[in-house]
């Protein structure tokens, strides 16, 4: 499944790399592509293993508010 989130407070490429590291840390997430320019994050994940809420929580733990679109 592919889901797009608006991510507030992506201030620079370092923020982009931080939210993208969810890909390595949250089981079930296969790919995260974030854009500083668009302030968006596109997540590919296995909905049987991880939920949208868990992704939002993972982003929050990194200090970013992710809003599912």
């Amino acid at each position: 499944m592919k889901k797009t989130f608006r991510v507030l407070e992506l201030h620079c490429p370092a923020c982009v790399m931080r939210v993208e590291s969810i890909e390595d840390e949250l089981p079930g997430v296969t790919r995260v592509n974030a854009s500083y320019q668009k302030q968006l994050m596109q997540v590919e994940f296995d909905e049987k293993r991880v939920t949208v809420e868990q992704i939002v929580l993972a982003a929050k733990q990194k200090g970013y508010q992710a809003i599912p679109l």
């Binding site: 490429p13 370092a14 590291s21 200090g63």
Partner: peptide, 26 residues
């Protein structure tokens, strides 16, 4: 900024943060 992301990530991970504490963004 990209090159510092890893260090920041590591430093943030080492800081204990109580539930409901303010977020830690750059």
């Amino acid at each position: 900024a990209s090159s510092l992301a890893q260090q920041i990530e590591q430093d943030v991970a080492m800081q204990p943060r109580p539930k409901g504490a303010p977020k830690i963004g750059l």
